[in-house]
Simulated assay, not measured.
Amino acid sequence: EVLVVDHHRSNPGFGTHLFLDPGAASTASMVLDVLEAGRYPVDPELATSLYAGLVTDTGSFRWGGAGSHDTARRLLAAGAEARAVGFALLDAHSFPWLRVLGELLSTARLDPGAVGGRGVVWLTVPHEVVASADEADVESLVSHLQGVREAQVAVLVKEIRPGECAVSLRSRPGRGDSIDVSAVASALGGGGHPAAAGCTVRGDAARVTARLRELLV
């Protein structure tokens, strides 16, 4: 028997038992609820693991509301090591990555007229960079993109292998209605949150980008 614990509304419903709560701040919050309901002990090591899940699932508390902060309080009280986890997940990178980072960011493109004038910023990471760089370093690029004031949506296209791309999508409130990037990801076989989603798509970067442009109207 397999228990699936998730808070993504795009969950297809696999497993023999499904605990699905789209209103939960994070999947880590739900796991903590299950453990506490079953009176299982939450030691510092387990609390730290759940805290890592909480930080990544909420975009370092950018979304998730009060529930995410309440989960953080409970995990910190159980002995979670927040400082080390925060550095490892959000800040740590190798020195050579700085040069690669600069070269990649110089290729980013802004489309201010996209999605009804709300703007999209795009960045493609070629396969040779993805193959040689740390996965976390590559994924961190989307954080740089989502800080662009002129764009409400950030799109990171990573050529994970020839003919296949992984896409990371971010959206933030801005002019007009917020853009649900999980709907874009779902149309390409992925899913996620309204503000943070992703998918893996067959095709080269140019073809995948063209398909994304069609969906981001």
Results as ranks from 00 to 15, higher is better:
residue 125 V to A: 08
residue 33 D to S: 15
residue 16 T to S: 15
residue 61 F to A: 04
residue 110 L to G: 00
residue 88 A to I: 05
residue 28 A to T: 11
residue 19 F to Y: 04
residue 156 L to V: 11
residue 27 T to V: 07
residue 106 S to C: 08
residue 15 G to V: 08
residue 31 V to N: 00
residue 213 R to A: 15
residue 53 G to N: 06
residue 144 H to W: 08
residue 164 E to D: 03
residue 130 V to M: 07
residue 26 S to Y: 09
residue 162 P to W: 03
residue 188 L to M: 05
residue 117 G to M: 04
residue 162 P to N: 05
residue 123 L to R: 01
residue 96 P to D: 06
residue 168 S to P: 02
residue 30 M to R: 13
residue 150 E to R: 00
residue 101 L to M: 06
residue 63 W to C: 07
residue 26 S to V: 03
residue 110 L to F: 07
residue 121 V to I: 15
residue 76 L to M: 15
residue 149 R to S: 14
residue 60 S to F: 09
residue 115 V to I: 07
residue 118 R to E: 10
residue 13 G to C: 02
residue 20 L to F: 01
residue 211 R to L: 12
residue 108 A to N: 00
residue 144 H to M: 02
residue 193 H to R: 05
residue 125 V to H: 04
residue 98 L to P: 01
residue 214 E to L: 04
residue 217 V to L: 03
residue 64 G to K: 07
residue 89 L to T: 14
residue 52 A to P: 10
residue 48 T to R: 08
residue 80 A to L: 01
residue 185 A to L: 12
residue 195 A to G: 04
residue 62 R to Q: 15
residue 203 G to L: 13
residue 49 S to Y: 03
residue 142 V to E: 05
residue 63 W to G: 13
residue 120 V to K: 03
residue 37 A to V: 11
residue 210 A to D: 10
residue 143 S to I: 03
residue 52 A to E: 05
residue 106 S to F: 08
residue 132 S to N: 06
residue 166 A to L: 13
residue 210 A to Q: 07
residue 41 P to G: 06
residue 3 L to K: 10
residue 142 V to I: 15
residue 212 L to T: 00
residue 60 S to V: 10
residue 212 L to H: 04
residue 52 A to I: 03
residue 57 D to Y: 10
residue 21 D to R: 14
residue 67 G to Y: 13
residue 112 P to S: 07
residue 71 T to E: 02
residue 168 S to E: 08
residue 193 H to M: 06
residue 157 V to L: 12
residue 80 A to Y: 02
residue 53 G to L: 10
residue 50 L to P: 05
residue 196 A to D: 02
residue 70 D to A: 11
residue 40 Y to N: 05
residue 153 V to I: 05
residue 135 E to G: 13
residue 196 A to V: 14
residue 3 L to D: 01
residue 27 T to H: 00
residue 157 V to S: 08
residue 16 T to K: 13
residue 139 E to K: 06
residue 17 H to W: 12
residue 119 G to R: 07
residue 107 T to E: 14
residue 125 V to I: 09
residue 139 E to D: 07
residue 41 P to L: 05
residue 119 G to D: 12
residue 102 G to V: 10
residue 154 A to E: 07
residue 9 R to I: 15
residue 141 L to D: 01
residue 129 V to N: 03
residue 117 G to H: 12
residue 97 W to A: 11
residue 121 V to H: 12
residue 137 D to T: 01
residue 20 L to R: 15
residue 138 V to P: 00
residue 209 T to E: 13
residue 124 T to K: 00
residue 28 A to F: 13
residue 213 R to S: 10
residue 26 S to T: 14
residue 104 L to T: 14
residue 158 K to E: 09
residue 25 A to H: 02
residue 197 A to R: 02
residue 201 V to P: 09
residue 40 Y to C: 04
residue 214 E to T: 15
residue 86 G to H: 09
residue 79 G to M: 10
residue 34 V to Y: 04
residue 138 V to M: 05
residue 51 Y to A: 15
residue 57 D to R: 08
residue 213 R to W: 11
residue 210 A to I: 08
residue 198 G to R: 12
residue 91 D to S: 14
residue 79 G to D: 01
residue 117 G to S: 01
residue 135 E to K: 11
residue 190 G to M: 03
residue 208 V to T: 08
residue 116 G to D: 04
